[in-house]
């Protein structure tokens, strides 16, 4: 590499960062690309461009950048984090889950124990849910031919609508904002129709309407959600790692006893983790169906019991 290129790359990266901050992701991507031409050995340039491409929904580009970055630096939390998001977007939940778990491991094992843990933990849950969704769809398809057919045709129509929007965006007929809005509209419409069909089927199949609850001992006392990575405190209580760390950063005390407690005092609770995993596996996806905070119903019938989503939007 000719001398001075490293410096030039750094300058370009900083310009890219400024554009990124201002929400001009196309310009940011272009500048990061120029930076990479100057210096292709800096893994951070690739993760920065991956992040810009995530915003632009250029999934393949994100994946290539993340892989390039990981090749240059293996302990690369950001790259795995972006990679998982792109993989989930292109509907590869198995790969997404393993990337997300890798990011999570790197995050909790890093010396900083940053607040990223909570964000990454949420991504892990999303990947698990996506993975479950695919399996569940298969199961439903096998069991209920007619419902499956109806759902499939709704989905085909929806995908076609999205492709049309993409095409119009590509040809410059509509802008990005408009395209995103239209896609969201189509998505809502599709989900509504799918829910209606499912409702009709659910009513004729009352066994599936049974309400199930997560036992309290699997629930994190801070978020009230089932735990993914429980850790135990000195007094024997367990919490989700990401949330107890958030608390300890503000106040280094045990939430129950108020005795001094530091992040280093936390120990993984492996048996409880396995119990949580087993429970989720047995009860399949309904526990995961909680992007909006509910954990109490089967995803297929969730819409029957949760008008609460409205709260989220206010």
């Amino acid at each position: 590499m000719p001398p001075g290129n490293e410096f030039a790359a750094e300058q370009l990266k900083n310009q890219g960062n400024t554009h990124f901050k201002n929400g001009d992701y196309e310009q940011a991507e272009a500048l990061y690309s120029q930076a990479i031409q100057k210096n292709s050995k800096n893994p951070l340039l690739f993760t920065n461009r991956a992040n810009a491409r995530l915003k632009l929904e250029k999934w393949e580009g994100v994946i290539n950048d993340c892989l390039a970055s990981i090749e240059l630096m293996t302990e690369n939390m950001k790259a795995y984090f972006y990679l998982a998001q792109a993989q989930i977007a292109i509907n590869h939940p198995n790969e997404a889950l393993s990337s997300a778990l890798r990011a999570y491991d790197l995050c909790v094992n890093s010396s900083q124990q940053t607040s990223n843990a909570a964000t990454i933990s949420a991504l892990v849950t999303r990947c698990k849910k996506a993975k479950w969704d695919i399996r569940e769809r298969e199961r439903v398809r096998r069991r209920q031919g007619l419902l499956a057919e109806l759902e499939a045709s709704l989905e085909t129509q929806y995908k076609k609508d999205v492709d049309d929007i993409e095409a119009r965006l590509e040809s410059g007929e509509i802008g990005r904002v408009e395209a995103t809005e239209e896609k969201q509209e189509r998505k809502t419409e599709f989900e509504q129709k799918r829910d209606d069909v499912r409702t009709a089927f659910a009513i004729s199949d009352p066994e599936n309407l049974e309400i199930r609850e997560v036992p309290d001992y699997l629930i994190d006392g801070i978020t009230f959600e089932i735990m993914n990575d429980p850790v135990v405190t000195k007094n024997g209580r367990s919490y989700e790692r990401a949330t107890i760390i958030e608390h300890l950063k503000r106040s280094a005390t045990d939430p129950l006893t108020r005795e001094p407690l530091s992040i280093n005092d936390l120990r993984p609770n492996i048996a409880l983790k396995e119990a949580c995993a087993e429970f989720m596996e047995k009860n399949k996806g309904w526990v995961y169906d909680c992007e909006d905070g509910e954990v109490d119903s089967d995803p297929r019938w969730a819409h029957l019991s949760c008008a609460r989503k409205d709260y989220e939007r206010t």
Binding site: A118, I222, E225, C290, D292, G293, E294, D296, R308, E312
Partner: peptide
């Protein structure tokens, strides 16, 4: 970050 999820659960109870 946690508020709405946690509050929605408290509300149910």
């Amino acid at each position: 970050m946690f508020a709405s999820k946690r509050l929605s659960k408290e509300l149910i109870k």
